Amino acid sequence: MSYKKHYSRYLAEHPNSLHFAPHSHHYWPDVTRDAQLAYWDDSARGVDHKWGTIFGERVPAVQKYLAQLLNHPYPEQFVFASNTHELLYRVISSYAPNKPLKILSTDSEFHSFSRQIRRLQERPEVEFVSIATEPFATFESRWLEAIQQQTFDLIFTSQVFYNSGIVAPELNTWIDAVPSRTQIIIDGYHGCGAIPTDLASYADRVFYLAGGYKYLQAGEGCCFMAVPKGCQLRPEFTGWFADFANLAKPQKAQVEYADDGMRFAGATMDFSAVYRLESVLAWWYRDGLTVAAMHDYVKQLQQAFLTILDEVKHPHINRQNLLAKDLNHHGHFLTFKLVNAETVEQLAAHLSQHGIETDYRGERLRFGFAIYHDVEDYQQLKNALTQL
């Protein structure tokens, strides 16, 4: 089955390109254009009163879709922001800056987190423990050992690591070893909408972060966090949305927060991305297009891709240079670890000249897959590789 008809506008803009970077910036389906215009129309009709439509209709609709997508029992626990970093820092700001803060994470988190942690470590009160994800074969045991040996205030880990595509250990393999006072944050950005995810058992325990820029296909500007049911943290980094329902009431000396996910909300933002996300999730729901079905489709694409590599026998881009050989616990992009960054840059430039759009990080070259690919498209890749 081909899904290309749903992406006709983006594909028309790039008729000679094979986009192998949807894990970086996913093509938007056609439904998002109508959603963008719907936001304009609602703003024109409502002007200052549009917030009633946004918070009364659009936000609840997306909350319900996300809860269904992730099998999360509490739609009201989803809160939105322009980026995940904003939401992450609200959780961190719940801890007093003059008190000790001990954080566990890995060496493979996205740049925003790693940069923020480096800055926080300039505080003498902050202690950071980082576990190397490589070698992957022993990561799960080393991760669990770290959790068992020490007590942390905060644990942060990706669902799928952005620099490899490796799926992190399942929550049920380590969460029972975490004390109840420790906050757990899962960065689901490279997993949500790609890897089937079930949060039902963790809805009162885990913060789950993700957004529309990648596999949710709605573009930048719409990120969200599932907040544990009953969470009573009081983020210092807060805004007027965080108690929106009581805005008209007299404000007390004690800063109050919503009793649901909105306690981690910020302030005024552009909600057009929320409209776009609603349109994507509504399309999936309407057509019965599940994450599991898309994941199976992508796995078929990946196998077709690897078959072509086996045929071409390229000296660099080959199965032997895959960073992870086992694709059973893998996201929707494949990472090749090559001899050096210069080789990667040269290969990426050559591929781009032949309409093959990839992305790279240092000595790692990444190929991503999406449902707007067909197996037949990969003949273009085969032609490009044979000319390298």
Rank of each mutant, 00 (worst) to 15 (best):
M1I: 05
M1D: 05
S2F: 05
K5F: 06
K5P: 03
Y7W: 11
A12Q: 04
E13G: 05
S17H: 06
W28A: 13
V31D: 05
W40H: 10
A44Q: 07
G52S: 15
I54S: 03
F55L: 11
R58N: 00
V59N: 00
H72C: 06
Y74N: 03
Q77V: 02
F78S: 03
N83K: 00
H85K: 08
R90E: 02
S93G: 13
Y95V: 04
A96C: 14
P97K: 07
L101T: 12
I103C: 08
L104I: 01
T106K: 02
S114M: 14
S114K: 12
I117V: 11
R118M: 03
E122D: 12
E125T: 15
S130P: 00
P135I: 07
T138M: 03
R142S: 05
A146H: 04
I147A: 02
Q149T: 13
Q150S: 14
L154C: 05
I155H: 00
F156G: 02
F156M: 14
V160L: 11
N163T: 09
N163Y: 02
I166P: 05
I175V: 13
A177Q: 07
P179I: 08
I184T: 03
I195H: 01
A200G: 04
R205N: 05
R205W: 03
V206M: 04
G211H: 12
K214L: 05
K214C: 08
G219C: 04
F224K: 01
M225N: 03
P228Q: 05
K229A: 15
G230V: 05
Q232V: 09
F237S: 10
G239D: 08
G239C: 08
W240E: 03
F241I: 11
D243Y: 12
L247R: 04
L247I: 00
F264A: 08
G266H: 09
A267T: 15
T268A: 14
F271P: 02
Y275E: 11
R276H: 07
V280P: 01
L281G: 01
L289V: 07
T290Q: 04
V291I: 13
A292K: 13
Q303M: 13
F305E: 14
R319H: 09
L322A: 01
L322W: 04
L323D: 06
G331Q: 05
N340F: 03
T343Y: 05
H350V: 01
H350N: 13
L351M: 12
S352M: 15
Q353P: 01
G355T: 10
T358G: 10
G362A: 09
E363R: 15
R364E: 01
Y372H: 04
Q380P: 07
A384N: 04
A384R: 04
